[in-house]
Computed example of a mutant assay.
Amino acid sequence: MATPLTADQLLTALRVEGITVVEYRDWREHNRNHMGTWGPVNGVVIHHTASSGTRDSVDLCYDGYDKLPGPLCHGVIDKEGVVHLVGNGRTNHAGLGDGAVLDAVINESALPRPTAKDTDGNVRFYGFECVNEGDGKDPWPAAQLEAIERVSAAICRAHGWGSGSVIGHKEWKNDKIDPLGFTMDGMRARVAVRLGSAPTPPSGNEPFPGADFFRNSPDSPVVAAMGRRLTAEGCSAYTEGPDSRWTDADRESYRRWQRKLGFTGCDADGWPGKSSWDALNVPRSS
């Protein structure tokens, strides 16, 4: 059992794991905490939305509907592998499931087939909805599957859990089929491999060029790409640009990014380091 991550801790965990994150509306305060407790937490539940289209799916998971008010999860994973955060706290995603399954998750042992509905999963689990029609025909792009793997690993890593803490909705409740189109045993195997090494950025991102690269005042497209990502994250200190030449504005912008990730003191001095760089997800430009 663990105390739930704060909003900032969740953001940092996801970004350090190399995930592109969109903060949707007032997700930090959007929850169902008035209906019951949130935590202690024990694992992650993966769902599919049974819908199509990123915007419609994100709106659905944020708002919910008459019989099931939102948020319906903590984050929505779209087909491009982007995670849209829609809730922070208790969310309406897991519902009543089998306490024997929860025990297996806590012990990271073999999962029994769910039969009972005696335990409130909204208390105990993070939930992520994945955009998919859930008909067995809608494809699961590689980028989306990788994002599911990275999201699961990020939360497990933050809490010190293993891959056995990740389950599908259908493994929690006997009347659910999601996620349909890949196996949870296969996904847990992927998560286990990822947890076996330090976080790495996606292959399409610019690898960390090293601390000395920036201290030598480079003129490089990498700097411009970094500046655009800092601007997108709301950390811009630029009065013009950004462009390819490293300037004091780049350093101040990067300092703001480090502080956004929760770094302080000499760890937020504006000089890029590997963990903060990997969390920024700078597109490859070199």
Results as ranks from 00 to 15, higher is better:
residue 5 L to C: 03
residue 7 A to N: 01
residue 12 T to G: 10
residue 13 A to N: 02
residue 19 I to M: 00
residue 19 I to Y: 04
residue 27 W to R: 08
residue 32 R to E: 05
residue 42 N to S: 13
residue 44 V to Y: 08
residue 46 I to Y: 03
residue 51 S to P: 08
residue 51 S to I: 06
residue 51 S to R: 15
residue 52 S to V: 02
residue 54 T to I: 07
residue 54 T to M: 13
residue 62 Y to C: 02
residue 65 Y to E: 06
residue 66 D to M: 13
residue 69 P to Q: 14
residue 73 C to G: 00
residue 75 G to M: 01
residue 78 D to E: 12
residue 83 V to Q: 02
residue 91 T to V: 09
residue 94 A to K: 08
residue 95 G to E: 03
residue 95 G to Q: 07
residue 102 L to H: 05
residue 103 D to M: 05
residue 111 L to N: 05
residue 118 D to K: 06
residue 119 T to E: 13
residue 128 F to E: 08
residue 129 E to Y: 13
residue 130 C to I: 02
residue 135 D to A: 13
residue 135 D to Y: 09
residue 138 D to A: 10
residue 145 L to M: 12
residue 151 V to P: 06
residue 153 A to C: 04
residue 153 A to D: 00
residue 155 I to F: 08
residue 157 R to M: 03
residue 164 G to K: 07
residue 165 S to W: 06
residue 166 V to M: 13
residue 170 K to V: 12
residue 172 W to G: 05
residue 179 P to F: 02
residue 186 G to A: 11
residue 186 G to W: 07
residue 192 A to M: 01
residue 195 L to W: 10
residue 198 A to H: 13
residue 199 P to H: 14
residue 204 G to N: 14
residue 205 N to L: 14
residue 210 G to M: 11
residue 210 G to H: 10
residue 211 A to H: 10
residue 214 F to Y: 09
residue 214 F to I: 00
residue 215 R to S: 07
residue 220 S to Y: 15
residue 225 A to F: 10
residue 232 A to L: 14
residue 233 E to G: 11
residue 236 S to Y: 15
residue 236 S to G: 10
residue 237 A to C: 11
residue 248 D to M: 14
residue 253 S to Q: 03
residue 257 W to M: 01
residue 258 Q to N: 07
residue 259 R to D: 04
residue 266 C to L: 12
residue 267 D to L: 10
residue 268 A to C: 13
residue 269 D to Y: 13
residue 270 G to E: 01
residue 272 P to R: 00
residue 273 G to F: 10
residue 274 K to L: 01
residue 275 S to P: 06
residue 277 W to R: 00
residue 282 V to P: 05
residue 282 V to K: 08
residue 283 P to R: 00
residue 284 R to P: 00
residue 285 S to C: 07
